[in-house]
Design a protein around this nucleic acid. Structure first.
Lengths: 218, 218
DNA sequence: ACCACTTACATACGCGGCGTATGTCCTAGT
DNA sequence: ACTAGGACATACGCCGCGTATGTAAGTGGT
């Protein structure tokens, strides 16, 4: 039966990814010995090289898995919010808070980019950025935010979030720093709104022309 | 003469830093062989371990040097601008553009954080963030920007810039992407202004109370 | 059902890099 | 001048990675 075979292989891959994820997330990519964590999964480096080519390939697989999980979580957060704008803001805040989780921070925001380069440029395009982009696109067509290139904005927000998370995590008082960061982040996002609450601005400021241009720059 | 001795030592340190900077900036930290680049400087690993303890120590020294240069450049940019706000914006744009330089990008934004953790938390506190913070503080006391924690804002901007730079550098069309990123970045910063050009907002929005609170959170 | 071939791993080997321990020379203080 | 300590170089061992090779099990054709 061929199913059996495929399942075994998938299980082996999964075990390797899980073991690597554990190791990368705790001691870090560079310090994680392939011999060690493959042995922890009851395998050897032979299996690793067979399935993933090299250590980097395995890291990439781990990143894809985590990225998918993060994207799903973000989508749930934004979907649960009462309004689209609030959904977006909560999505961003959730992004910061996810970046506080040691495993995500270490793998996605430290070792990942360092080893693989800019992940969002990879075949496995960063789902989180796509999610943020889509939220921004909808907000812009609604005229809820200023005319801004969504992908650019998503990437800027992404960068700000991840750095904020790094800062918070390394801070002496993580809770306090986190509060400051989230507050500041909300303030920054507020600047993107057309109908913001900071002062008496004309609500019609985001005029019809806002939907006219596409972000495709020829 | 004791000066001679000290000068020789300083020169050795400088040679090591320069060689390491070259190597780290091109092939990257992990791929840079200590034997290779110390030999390139006419020295051996012995000198390196003597002066910097280990490879990480040398990286830290390289980072401090680059950071100082960047800070100086940023200060010149902001000082040359006609207004304080414009100076700040140009400072941020310059920051993005510096992050496009391969050496800065690789060492300061990729390998540095990956190897040393969040650099801005280190004894050699990141000068660029301090510079941005100071600019923001002044703008806030002038009432030119909304009430926001300057350090938080500086760090968010810092994160956004560095990620933008990574994105640009890995892009297919760096010039076009750079233009998009800078435009988007300006739009994001515009959101921080109290007296912005997006709509008729009361210019007195930044009232005297803005200068009342210190960023020291007790 | 048998055989040729491939797949999925494990084992074995070599190399390069890092850290440390040790050695040597040279300078500076007395 | 003599000595102690600093500034390096040299030597050694270990570990981790990548590759080449081995092996058992599975798969497809006839």
């Amino acid at each position: 039966m061929r199913r059996q075979r495929h399942d075994m292989i998938a299980e082996t891959r999964a075990k390797l990814i899980a073991a690597a994820r554990q190791a990368f997330g705790t001691v870090g990519y560079a310090e994680a010995s392939m011999d060690d964590f493959t042995a922890g999964a009851g395998l050897t480096r032979g299996a690793l090289y067979h399935h993933f080519g090299d250590k980097k390939g395995l890291l990439q697989a781990v990143i894809e898995e985590i990225d998918a999980e993060m994207t799903a979580r973000l989508n749930r957060v934004s979907a649960a919010a009462p309004s689209r704008w609030e959904g977006f803001v909560e999505e961003c805040v959730a992004y910061i808070q996810m970046a506080l989780e040691p495993e995500i921070q270490r793998i996605m925001f430290r070792d990942g980019p360092a080893v693989l380069g800019d992940i969002s440029q990879w075949p496995s395009n960063n789902g989180c950025i796509a999610a943020l982009s889509e939220s921004l696109r909808q907000l812009r067509t609604e005229g809820a935010i200023v005319d801004i290139d969504e992908e650019v904005a998503a990437r800027l927000i992404n960068g700000a979030s991840s750095h904020a998370a790094l800062w918070i995590a390394n801070s002496d008082k993580p809770e306090e720093t986190s509060q400051r960061a989230v507050d500041g982040f909300r303030a920054l996002l507020e600047g993107l709104r057309v109908d913001n609450s900071r002062g008496p601005v004309d609500v019609m400021g985001g005029r019809e022309q806002s939907a006219q241009q596409e972000h495709e720059t020829p």
